[in-house]
Structures are given as structure tokens and as C-alpha cells.
């Protein structure tokens, strides 16, 4: 049998006079405890865009003392109007997660571990392997004797995660190197 609220209170042994509140002063102090100290007050608001699906919801990052302290949907952006799904809502969790790769890492041939390296070292060594591969495999002409100026031994894969400005440079750089195996997530 379904119960009504009245039955419920009876069952709980509670009268109908209502619940006596704690003395006002006491309650207020405790409420203040909870209500004050909004973690985003005084934070700088930075508008950014969710890095997942192509709806591209806008997110406000609240930044205090050089750290992101909170993220939430941008209510002004006419598409998401402040809302976010689980992934967008997890932005703070994601940016500040312990699992991020924070340093350039290198794995030597036949090694079983990663080593930390400097960016200069990484670029220097990468330039060496790229040049070595390019020089060894570059085809000025294809098998039919037609000028092609390409290497088929270096490839590019990704990245729809990049910004337009980054994509523009990557495409330019790749064609400069003579790379023809260029592909990314649009083909997935």
C-alpha cells in the first residue's frame, strides 16, 4: 500500500508541528561556514573550448594564482548555453590529472623504459632521423620516371586535436619534407 506523507511522519514518530530549528545564531554560523569561500570568487575567467566532440561547447576556466580552480560551461555561448556533458564537465579533472605527460620522453632502441630528455635534444635527434630517412628514401622520380619529389618512408597520422593554426603549419611542413602518407581521424 502506498503511504502518504502524513503516514510517513507518523511512522517516523514525528508530530505535525514541524521540526524545531536549531537556534538561529548557531545555524547561521554553520551555514556561513558552508556558504562562504566560493572557490571561484576573485578568479579570472578565461573562455576556452571543450576539446572533445565537434559541438565545441564553450567553457569558462576560473584561474586563481596561475592555476585552474574550476571549469564550467559558458552560459553566453549560444550553442551550449552553459551546459556540459560528462566529458566537458570533467575538464578540471582532466587538465590537472596526475597521468599527464609533463616532460618530453625518449625510448631508445631495444630499451624497456622511457627517459626524460630536453626539448632541444628531442628536436636535434628527431631532425637527424628525419633527414637520414628522407635522404635515404627520397624519390625525385617514381618508377615510371615521372618527377614526384617525395618520400614514401615517412608518414604523418593525426591530428584533429590540433588547432587550425597548428594544422596549417603541419600540412605545410609535411609537404616540404615530401611526405605523401598523410592521414588523420577524418578517415576513421
Amino acid at each position: 500500500m502506498d503511504l502518504t506523507r502524513r503516514d510517513f511522519l507518523m511512522l517516523c514518530g514525528i508530530g505535525f508541528a514541524g521540526i524545531a530549528l536549531a537556534p538561529i545564531g548557531y545555524a547561521k554560523e554553520l551555514i556561513t561556514d558552508h556558504a562562504d569561500g566560493l572557490k571561484i570568487s576573485g578568479a579570472k575567467e578565461v573562455i576556452t573550448v571543450c576539446p572533445f566532440c565537434s559541438v565545441s561547447c564553450h567553457i569558462i576556466a576560473h584561474v586563481k594564482d596561475g592555476k585552474i580552480v574550476s571549469t564550467e560551461g559558458d552560459p553566453d555561448y549560444p550553442i551550449n548555453e552553459g551546459a556540459l556533458c560528462a566529458k566537458g564537465a570533467a575538464m578540471l579533472n582532466m587538465v590537472n590529472c596526475d597521468h599527464r605527460v609533463y616532460k618530453p620522453m625518449y625510448r631508445a632502441p631495444y630499451s624497456d623504459k622511457w627517459e626524460e630528455k630536453s626539448w632541444d635534444w628531442m628536436f636535434g635527434r628527431l631532425a637527424e632521423v628525419i633527414k637520414e630517412t628522407r635522404d635515404a628514401t627520397f624519390k625525385i622520380k617514381n618508377d615510371a620516371g615521372i618527377e614526384v619529389n617525395r618520400t614514401e618512408s615517412i608518414f604523418w597520422q593525426g591530428s584533429s586535436q590540433m588547432d587550425n593554426e597548428e594544422c596549417a603549419l603541419v600540412h605545410q611542413g609535411l609537404r616540404g619534407m615530401g611526405v605523401v602518407y598523410v592521414d588523420h581521424q577524418a578517415r576513421i
Binding site: 632521423v129 628525419i130 630517412t133 635515404a136 628514401t137 614514401e152 618512408s153 615517412i154 608518414f155 604523418w156 597520422q157 593525426g158 591530428s159 584533429s160 586535436q161 590540433m162 603541419v170 602518407y181 588523420h184 581521424q185
Partner: peptide
């Protein structure tokens, strides 16, 4: 037949 390449955010 492929020597090296780039896999960026995929």
C-alpha cells in the same frame, strides 16, 4: 617498407 613517422594525438 616504412621507416618512421608522426602519430600526433591519435
Amino acid at each position: 617498407q616504412v621507416k618512421g613517422g608522426f602519430v600526433w594525438a591519435t
